[in-house]
Design a protein around this nucleic acid. Structure first.
Ligand code: MN
Ligand code: MN
Ligand code: ZN
Ligand code: ZN
Lengths: 151, 151
DNA sequence: TGAATATTGATAATGGTTTCCATTAACAGG
DNA sequence: CCTGTTAATGGAAACCATTATCAATATTCA
């Protein structure tokens, strides 16, 4: 009955606690990056060489469903994942994406004001369109300083 | 030298005005939906059966580059496109996405306040992270009223 | 009009993600 | 602890949106 919140979450939904699942959480816990399935696989193989890429995809999908990870598309042709409640990160943040080198910055500037407005908007939208809103994304796209220098 | 703004834009960038390009603009002008490349292709074939899907992709890519259309990912595994300055739509809007049936609603509620905050945020982020910001996306994800009823 | 060249469209290739299915591992009940 | 039931795994093949290739065609402009 004890254990990290994500184990609790798995249990609540009737899913089993397995090595691959724990390993993937471990990898996501230890990075500030937004890893793709294959990047996670590469790290995972170092720990357990017999793990399969299929399992990575399946697990990330499961975790996304139950809210343990969040799946993003930043426009580079592959999905990227981030642990919900990553201890290395601020809880709520939005994203700044370099369309050239694909660098992703988590920013929290103005996030308080943004959140306030987001909540207000979310309420209004829920009422007006009868939507049950789960989450939102805010992405700013542009060119990072390094890519600007390099032309 | 005259003609719609997108023709001007093509010309400014040194691209030619061709039938497929005009046709794709026409299709996007006449819908409020967010069409995928294949959906556009299906409409295009009705007008010119010899058009190729490749051309659709190429053209949408070109239009995205020069700002004539905007490309979005709403999480259903294919890119979706929307004409910039579609006469059927409000200029600036954000999106409400049903994760179940993939319905997409353009909303403009609070968009004025949002935009104000977005501009402020954009300025602050540009300065702080030395980013040259081109655009942003705001997506709310949830379940639409119909999908709620259907369980 | 005709040469120069940008664009097109058919086909094949790519690559991230899913599906399939036989094998393995988790775990509740004994 | 065993053990049976059933969920989870991993390798291979399939899937499918998107891209690359390249010969044929259309546009532009002198
Ligand atoms: Mn992030
Ligand atoms: Mn829209
Ligand atoms: Zn960059
Ligand atoms: Zn729906």
């Amino acid at each position: 009955m004890k254990g990290p919140w994500w184990q609790q979450r798995l249990c609540d939904y009737g899913f089993r606690l397995t090595n691959p699942r724990a390993m993937i959480i471990g990898i996501l816990r230890n990075t500030e990056k937004h890893l793709s399935a294959e990047e996670i696989y590469i790290d995972a193989v170092k720990i357990n060489p017999s793990i399969g890429l299929t399992t990575i995809y399946r697990t990330l999908d499961l975790f996304t469903q139950i809210g343990v990870v969040q799946k993003f598309d930043f426009g580079d042709g592959r999905a990227r994942y981030e642990l919900t409640n990553n201890p290395l990160k601020k809880d709520h943040h939005h994203h700044l994406v370099c369309v050239k080198c694909k660098t992703i910055i988590d920013y929290t500037d103005f996030v308080h004001e943004e959140l306030e407005l987001m909540n207000k908007t979310e309420k209004a939208l829920s009422r007006k369109y009868r939507f049950n809103i789960y989450h939102h994304t805010v992405h700013f796209y542009g060119i990072c300083s390094q890519c600007q220098r390099e032309g």
